[in-house]
Design a protein around this nucleic acid. Structure first.
Lengths: 213, 213
DNA sequence: GTATGTGAAGTAATTCACAGCT
DNA sequence: AGCTGTGAATTACTTCACATAC
């Protein structure tokens, strides 16, 4: 293995491999081939091998991968051994659903703060977290050492929220607002744009056969 | 313009152009250049022109695009003039948030049915829609001519739901369950995997400088 | 002069195909 | 014999650059 840039798509697939290999390990399976790993994820064997290859030689030629070992190495690579503090900004319907989302702890993420501008919401408890005013955000983020921020506010407020977050030292943002966020280079943003997902699907509904996706 | 395969990334950007051009039209702007269009979306001028070029010659050489005209053409291309009926399956936190999501109508999507397996929920009203049993799904989907299904159930039930949906004639699926769905070739699926988004971000948190994304 | 439309060049990701290890 | 690891080939997308139209 040589030093190469690792595509983000590869990182994203590694989590799928980890999920799968965790299942297999529960089923007490000892070995797994690249073809088997890719199968239910509809990925080719070559793709799986190339992805894993970025991180070293995990496999046994002629015999596939040792399930337990692969699981441990992937967990390590993917930072599943670490935990991070998370804040959510915006406690509307989507924010509330996300607060209730039990997946956080599984990802090693502790939801430690929630913010809103609505005075009727401030002070209320949600999933054991007290909703605070956005005006206190900077201090609380520093104080609680929050490194990941989730933006679930309307589009027009999103950039301001992103500015405050990055100013306070947040390194990653999951953005649900339907707009592009300008952030400093070292900050990583991922966007989930529900409107756009729906729009894209409705495009395919309208265009049926015309476009081969 | 010749007949070419249109990348899905292009389709997805067209919606961004439409949003922007709609804003500009509200501001009574008459013309817009490809550079201006791309600017706040952090897309290059060439990218914008290439995307629009897939669908014909909309622009005026030397003068950019006529805002109103571009808006109308994009609306047409993207099927914004049509409406579709939508069903949601799973009325947990996420499903409820989506039901409440006001973006639907804007996309020309009418949420006309909601399904759950929980007997305590069945019969209740949510956002003016009565929650029905999953066992009645097939008939209701046909009867109400539902063409888009949203899956917001846990991973283990998701494939079964997808089977019922596609069997009943649903053509597009927005899947929030963290697993790959096997569907007939003509059915279009888009996946929103919140766990994975969080995982990917936490990978970047853990690996700070090491990986240039 | 200015900005489009588009081949050509460049970059990135996927898939192929096979040498080499067990 | 079987399956990995990886360069080479392919495919997909983006960016460049310029002839063309207004």
């Amino acid at each position: 293995m040589s030093i190469k840039k690792i595509p983000e798509t590869t990182i994203s697939r590694l989590f799928l491999y980890l999920r799968k290999v965790t299942e297999l390990s529960k089923l007490s399976m000892k070995r797994v081939s690249s073809a088997e790993l890719g199968e239910s994820l509809h990925l080719g064997a070559a793709q799986v091998r190339k992805d894993l290859g970025y991180f070293g030689h995990f496999g046994v030629s002629g015999a596939g991968y040792v399930v337990q070992e692969l699981k441990e190495k992937l967990s390590k690579i993917l930072g599943k051994d670490k935990t991070f503090n998370v804040a959510i900004v915006g406690t509307g319907n989507l924010g509330t659903a996300l607060l209730a989302y039990s997946g956080f702890k599984k990802q090693g993420l502790n939801l430690v703060a929630a913010f809103d501008t609505d005075v009727n919401k401030i002070g209320k408890q949600l999933q054991g977290v007290e909703i605070k005013a956005v005006s206190h955000m900077k201090d609380i983020i520093k104080e609680k050492k929050i490194s990941l921020g989730i933006i679930a506010v309307p589009a027009k407020g999103a950039q301001d929220v992103a500015d405050i977050l990055t100013n306070a030292g947040v390194k990653c943002i999951l953005n649900f607002a339907p707009r592009y966020l300008n952030v400093p280079e070292e900050v990583k943003v991922r966007n989930v744009d529900l409107s756009r997902e729906l729009e894209i699907l409705s495009y395919f509904l309208g265009n049926g056969k015309k476009v081969k996706l």
